[in-house]
Every structure is written in structure tokens, then in C-alpha cells.
């Protein structure tokens, strides 16, 4: 079924917010899909990076409840491949920040098994806590 998507003021405000937070001109995304092809983690995502860009273009706040934004590992593969010079990794970070700043953590650091804690390098913990806790 084809339906016309109506963009409300709320949708526009969300797009503006993410554009400001990420510094990415999200409306310039031409939906070529190269980022999705390049992304090494796409198979674990529920929507692809290009779909994430599209939902933000449409100002759909529900994008903050996708798995995608948390699965993105900020590996910058999309960053170097996007033909329009956009940076989906920054958009994903902005979306994570929207959640983390509401004090909604993606992981509970007290649930990491002791056996894992004994072997994980600090670099893993520091980066995970920065990306997944607020």
C-alpha cells in the first residue's frame, strides 16, 4: 500500500534536533544504501544504517527504540564510504545520546559476570560504558 507520509511539526523538530546534535546534514542523504552495504554490523541490526538515516529524515522518534543505534560500533566504515560525505556514525551517536540523556542506560554494568570482569581489558569496559551508559 502506498500512502503519503505527513511531516508534522514534531517530526521536523526531531530532525532538527538530531541534525544539530550530530552535525550531519541528514536531509542530504540520497538513500543510496552504500552505508548499509559497508556496515560490518548490519546483520545484527533491525533497520539498516540507510533506513536509520531515512527515519530521521522523516523525523520519526521511534528510531530511538531500534536495536540499530546500540549495535553500531562507531567503526567509521560508513563515514569513509558515504558518497555525499555524510556520517551515519554521528547520527547513531546522537540517537544514543537522546536516550542516555534521559537516564536510560542500554546495559547494566553490574550484571557483567565476575569471570568476564577478570579478563576484560579496561579499553573494552571504558568504551562500552561510554557508548552504552549515560
Amino acid at each position: 500500500m502506498i500512502s503519503k507520509t505527513e511531516i508534522t511539526a514534531k517530526n521536523e523538530a526531531f530532525l532538527r534536533r538530531i541534525t544539530e546534535l550530530s552535525g550531519v546534514s541528514i536531509t542530504r542523504c540520497e538513500q543510496c544504501g552504500i552505508c548499509s552495504v559497508a556496515c560490518p554490523l548490519v546483520s545484527g541490526m533491525d533497520i539498516s544504517p540507510a533506513e536509520m538515516m531515512r527515519t530521521v529524515q522523516l523525523g520519526q522518534e521511534e528510531v530511538t527504540s531500534t536495536k540499530t543505534i546500540w549495535v553500531c560500533a562507531s567503526c567509521f566504515t560508513c563515514t569513509v564510504r558515504c558518497p555525499r560525505g555524510l556520517d551515519p556514525s554521528k547520527v547513531a551517536e546522537a540517537l544514543r545520546q537522546i536516550e542516555l540523556r534521559k537516564a536510560i542506560d542500554y546495559m547494566d554494568i553490574s550484571t557483567i559476570p565476575a569471570e568476564e570482569m577478570r579478563q576484560l581489558p579496561q579499553i573494552a569496559l571504558v568504551s562500552a560504558f561510554r557508548k552504552l551508559t549515560g
Partner: peptide, 15 residues
């Protein structure tokens, strides 16, 4: 007496 002992009990120091 390993670095991980402090992290195991107080993982938040990595924040």
C-alpha cells in the same frame, strides 16, 4: 592482586 579486582568490584571506575 590484579588490576581486574578493582574493576570487578567497582566497574564504574571505567566511567
Amino acid at each position: 592482586y590484579a588490576a581486574s579486582t578493582l574493576l570487578e568490584h567497582y566497574p564504574e571506575i571505567a566511567r
